[in-house]
Design a protein around this nucleic acid. Structure first.
Lengths: 234, 234
DNA sequence: AAAAGTATTGCGGGAACCCGCAACGTTGTG
DNA sequence: CACAACGTTGCGGGTTCCCGCAATACTTTT
């Protein structure tokens, strides 16, 4: 079995490569890519059955890399290995996993045994394995409310800096509907409940989304590129 | 000599502890704190001459921890060891280094030899050592323009979501001056030059500042706490 | 099918924001 | 001192944003 490790942190890469060679004798060959772009190219060129993928990387983040890999080779087993339990990552991943595919999500703060277990379960056994800390992410948000997919889309557009009018055009909604979605977004993010002077809700929404880890820098970058591309080709 | 390592990533911590014990025989005792709060407490309680400090940590980030440590023990030598070359970090550090103190800033992507060199130079020899990648950060910004300290302060307030009026009050400026600073801020961040539909400049400014690494999540958190504290005690 | 609930849209107005114009103070240079 | 350069401040107006109110749709419940 061939496994590809996509990881830009030298210390983490060394550790995971060691772990694989020690604990998974079934793996006959490993390869190491040091960023998302490189990893994507290797994965498409070679014939890897399993991938360990870091999420936060330069050039191309793990989710974008995984999307193109899965779109060409949907049977590939991918174990995401990340420092952060961001809702943004989970949302990103859950939108790109192909049906019947094996994947997993393990935090880098997890113990070695947990990591090794996940390596075996996902790469060898083809199971789905997601840490419990991550699973309950959506629930604890604010007043137990999760962002609807539609609200999340608006949040992304807001985060890019688009105006209401532009968002309406993009999403094929009326101006007022966009503003309604923004209202419920503000509500769910808990904006307007602070004491002290009133705030600029738009900026505050982005601020809160970042601090609550509903968004992160990687998805901002992805959304930006997506927006640029779609704008140019239309 | 006693050295404290403040690092929440288990793999990085192990590596740096190994490196110290192998390469720096002068170090007789090492201690490991797993987050900023813990590290701060240990540093103030024990008598450490040198500290290796991660920047991105939960509970309390490295800069905030270093600030309180230096305010009580300004002679402490601190080597910052970070994944990211964010302008936000440099700004934060340069504002808290006490005069005549020894410190350094090394990226985690640096080679082992560079890291070991920095360990020796900063902790043992008391030199100042900053990687070259970091030093030129301020210059390449946009049209060769660096943010003035005053503009940076406004950017922070904007990022918190404060309104112009509130910012004016906080900084003891007139409303119009705040708006002028925002104008030059927009200019330096390159906002308003994009083609395509017009944008919400406020949100866009935050977005760009994050993507250009003028700001990052840690400074947002710090600014937030600072704002809350100052508001309550006034 | 009726009723109740929810999402979408329009209208309108007050507040905040963006910014050109012009007046004023400060600083520094010949 | 004069003059220029620059930061600060006020004024005014055009635009965007925030959001209550109310009229339709569309969905679910009874």
């Amino acid at each position: 079995m061939k496994v590809l490790v996509v990881e830009d942190d030298q210390y983490h890469a060394r550790y995971i490569l060691d772990a694989i060679s020690e604990e998974l004798p079934e793996v006959t060959e490993t390869m190491h890519a040091i960023n998302g772009l490189d990893g994507e190219a290797e994965a498409l060129a070679g014939s890897f059955e399993g991938i360990v993928m870091d999420l936060q990387m330069d050039l191309r983040n793990g989710i974008d890399a995984a999307r193109t890999i899965w779109s060409r080779k949907p049977e590939t087993r991918i174990l995401f290995w990340s420092n952060y339990a961001d809702e943004a990552y989970l949302r990103g991943i859950s939108r790109i996993v192909p049906p019947n595919s094996a994947y997993g999500y393990v935090l880098k703060t997890a113990s070695s045994s947990r990591l090794k277990l996940a390596l075996r379960a996902v790469l060898l056994e083809g199971q789905i394995m997601v840490g419990r800390e991550l699973d309950q992410l959506g629930r604890q948000n604010r007043r137990g409310s999760v962002l609807e997919e539609s609200e999340y889309a608006i949040l992304l557009d807001l985060a890019l800096g688009l105006q209401d009018k532009t968002i309406a055009k993009r999403q094929n909604l009326s101006l007022r509907t966009v503003q309604n979605r923004l209202l419920s977004l503000y509500d769910k993010l808990g904006i307007g409940e602070e004491d002290g002077p009133p705030l600029n809700k738009r900026v505050r929404a982005l601020n809160c989304a970042l601090r609550n880890k509903v968004l992160n820098l990687q998805v901002l970058e992805s959304a930006e590129m997506d927006y640029e591309n779609r704008r140019k080709t239309s």
